[in-house]
Each structure stands twice: as structure tokens, then as C-alpha cells.
Amino acid sequence: MTALPSLRDQRSLERASLKHRLAEKGVDRVLWLLVPGAVFVVLLFVYPFLYGLQLSFQPKGGGNPFQNYITFFSDEYSAETVWITLRLGLPAALFNVLASIPIAFRMRGRFRGKRALTTLLVVPITLGTVLTAEGLLAFFGPTGWFNRIWIALGADEPAKLTHNYWGVLFSLVITGFPFAFLLTLSYLSGIDPTLEQAAATLGASKRQRFRTITMPLLAPGLAVTFCLSFVLAFSVFPSAVMVGNPAGETHVMSIAAYETALRDNDFAMGSAIAMLMALVMLIVIGVVLIWRTTLYRGATGGKG
């Protein structure tokens, strides 16, 4: 049976049509379903992005294609926005992630009022930047409730917590924390609790279990959480205007990009700032994700 003429094999191999060979590679009619999505992403994301990229190399006044970038970095006022944005975004993201770990930990397992507490922690998502800003201005303002209590407690003068760096940072924590918390919670509940129990039967203390079992399994998730929190904080725009000091200490990249493009009508320069923003963003995310590849990223035994 094995020694049948290979001539026939040859013939049938040739007969394997192109369609079948493509199907072998996963290319078949199902891929038509991708067309709307692909057209969409190319038309509304890739094309504008590339358009912005090439626009950024066509400075308004003509001349050196890199002029926009040179101008951006040689002008201290605009160059400083990179640092200002990072100084807001990184601490805010870091705080949100770190704060959500112990809280998410307490929220594991069942207890009375868990659902209510989760909902309470999620509510700030609904506040929106404007209500948060109004609230921060009123609550932390010089005559707000916070400073009234502060002075009643014996302080000499009201703490300055609005229209500066702190106001924006508070706003970023209020709007960003629920996201970080929910993500951390979902990663944490993906870890099989029996793993910790197994470690406990092997004599690991609470602290050891956290350090040797939970943390290593949670770390890749935390990296992703950090990235997404950072995107959120890094994009800061309305709150930097409303509760910050948009011309000074909280003159972030979004404000610079927006004002240049839509107020001064210099789309080329605005695009250049947007591209730089994307670049800084990608660098930070890239660093975090590269660090993440050094971690264990397999199954965590949970329900996912």
C-alpha cells in the first residue's frame, strides 16, 4: 500500500488549489469580516495619525522640516511641558496602582456589603472632570470645608490646594483610582486562591505568601494596570485647566498641543506636540512592557 506510484501524489498535490492553500494559512472568506474594521482603523486612526506626522514636518513658516521640533525643545516654556506632564502622570499612576493593591486585597473573598463598597469605589467614574473640578475648588478652596477644618485644627493659614500642582494631582487620583482599582481587582480575582492555601499548608506566613505567590502572579497585571492608568493621567487636559495653573505649573502637553493647534491655528506645530506626546507615552509603556516580559506570564490558575 505504501509503494503506490508517487506520480499520483504529484498530480493531486498540483491539484491542491490556491484557495485550499490559502485556507491552510487561515485566509478564507471569513476574513471579509475584517474589512469594515480594517477600513475604519486605517481611515480614522492610521491615516490621521500619519497625516499628523507628516504635517508636523511641514512647519507653518516653511523651511527646515524639523523646525517644529527644534522650536518645541528650544523654547523653555514648551519644552518644560514634557517634564510637567510626567511629573503629574507618573506619580498619579503609581499612586493609583499602589493604593489599589491593598484595597483590592481586602475586597477578595465574600463579606457583607462588598457589592456596595465596590459600587462606592466605582462611583467617581461618573463624576466627570467638571464636577470633580468644581468640587475640588469648593472643597479644598481657601474658604472650603477642608480648610475650615484645617484652621479649626490649629493651622495658621489655609493650605493652598487648588489652582496648582496638587489640585490636578487630586483630580487625577479621584478619576483614575476607580479604573486602577477595578483592573487590579480583576487581575487579583484571576489568581486561584488555592495556590495561596497550598503555600499556607507548606508553612508560608501571610507575608511570605504575598511576596512569593501572589505578587509574582499579579505583577504582569499590575504592569498593564500601570500602563492604562498612566495613559489616563498622561492625557490630563480639562482638570489641568480648571483646577491647575494652566499657564504655569500645570502647563501640560495636552494644553500646549490644544492651544497651539486650535487656538493659534498652527496645526503643524500642534501635530508635532501630539506626536511627541505619543512618543513619550510609547517610551514609558514600552519600558514597562519590556520589564513585564521578564516576569512569569503564564496561567494563574484562576477563572481568568
Partner: peptide, 26 residues
Amino acid sequence: KKLLNVLFLLPILMPPMTYGIPLATV
């Protein structure tokens, strides 16, 4: 497929301002 996956991830990972300004221009 990898490329397409990345393309569908980027709009979520990017600050809206970065693609919003060029998009508004377009």
C-alpha cells in the same frame, strides 16, 4: 494578524489628544 491586533490596541493605549488633533485636522 499581529499588526492588526496592535492597530486595534493603539487607540486605547494612546492619549486621545495625540490622535484627536490630527483627526480634527483631517
